[in-house]
Amino acid sequence: MSVAPVVIVHGGAWSGGTGQCDARAEGAKQAAIAGWARLKETENSMDAVEAAVRALEDDPIFDAGTGSVLNDAGKIEMDAAIMDGTTLNSGAVACVQNIKNPVTLARKVMENTHHCLLVGEGANEFAEKIGIPVVPTEELVSELSTNKLKFCEGNYDDRVGHAFKATNINKHKKHAQGEHDTVGAVAVDPHGNVAAATSTGGITAKMVGRVGDSPLIGLGCYGDSDTGGVSCTGHGESIMKVHLASRIIMYMETGMSAQDATELALDYMYRRTEGAGGAIVLDNKGNVGLHFTTDFMAWAYVKDDVMHHGLVPDTIHQVAVE
């Protein structure tokens, strides 16, 4: 099957603060360009999503890789997953430290082990065994993540619990305060192969050892070349409760469009859990779905050498990619 290739990325969904809007929008665009360049070079969707997410992990404005938020002990614990929609093989890591690009380590778990998920010390030991270098912690800690932890100190319940509840609801839109700057990418290559990847540092001031949806296949990430691929962002515990990524795929399997399935699933999550977030989706023909129940989500996709990007609902910009 010949398909017009597409790569789409997100840099997280959030409400409230507008201070990093321009930087997040630019970071999403640059990641989409990186993923598109790799997709054109190799015609491989797995290569494309890894390249796009690595670009997001390397940008300290996002909560993944460099720039990951700090837990309540002041340390970084990162999660990532990647999935090949043609074979349904996947790899993931959780609670890893001192790894610059967790998405690459997740791919190595998929390709070099019989497992789908490695966590904590075991994941770091595996990284050392296969030659993925460890970086000093201070290279991953950003000023932004340090300031977020200071803001949260002594206020854990409000920031990690109540902050994700709705603050303004009407029949058209559900807004929730808080940041969900997890990153992700989905791609379909010219051969119709779908891949998806998600990476995160989690939630500021989270408990040590907390793992959210991002490294769990079917929750924060899923890819199936028979249907499509999904990468999610949002309140992890809410996403976990409704199996958001697989729910979107399930809706698509009934014949629903990628866009309608994304909207329905996120509205269902809000109705059942009051959890906010967003998702990017491609079906196996390259049709795009994206939706978010927060004020903002940084997203961009490239198709036919044209980039489409946005940050707020119902506003899409286009620019040619050289």
Score class of each variant (00 low, 15 high):
A4W: 00
V6H: 00
V9E: 01
G17D: 12
G17I: 06
G19V: 09
A23E: 14
K29F: 00
I33N: 04
A34S: 15
A34L: 12
G35Y: 03
W36R: 11
K40M: 12
E41P: 03
E41K: 13
E41D: 13
N44W: 02
D47M: 02
V49P: 05
E50I: 14
E50T: 15
E57W: 00
D58E: 15
P60W: 00
F62Q: 06
G67P: 05
V69K: 03
V69G: 09
N71V: 06
D79M: 03
A81R: 01
I82N: 05
I82M: 12
L88Q: 14
L88T: 14
N89S: 12
A92L: 11
A92D: 08
A94H: 04
C95S: 11
K100I: 01
N101G: 06
N101Y: 08
V109P: 10
M110D: 06
K129D: 14
G131P: 01
I132H: 05
P133E: 13
E139M: 12
E139F: 05
S142Q: 09
E143N: 15
K148N: 13
K150Q: 13
F151N: 14
Y156F: 10
H162F: 12
A163N: 09
K165T: 13
A166R: 10
N168V: 05
N170W: 09
A176R: 08
Q177V: 03
Q177L: 14
H180S: 15
D181A: 11
V186A: 09
D189P: 09
D189G: 14
H191W: 06
A197V: 07
I203H: 02
M207F: 11
V208L: 14
G209Q: 04
R210Q: 08
L216E: 05
G218F: 03
G220K: 00
D224G: 03
G229H: 00
S231A: 15
H235E: 07
K241Q: 15
S246P: 03
R247D: 09
M252E: 10
G255Q: 07
D260R: 12
A265D: 08
D267T: 14
D267G: 00
Y268S: 10
Y270A: 01
G275D: 08
G277F: 06
V281E: 06
L282G: 11
N287R: 11
V288T: 12
H291I: 00
M297L: 10
V302A: 03
D305M: 08
H309S: 15
V321D: 10
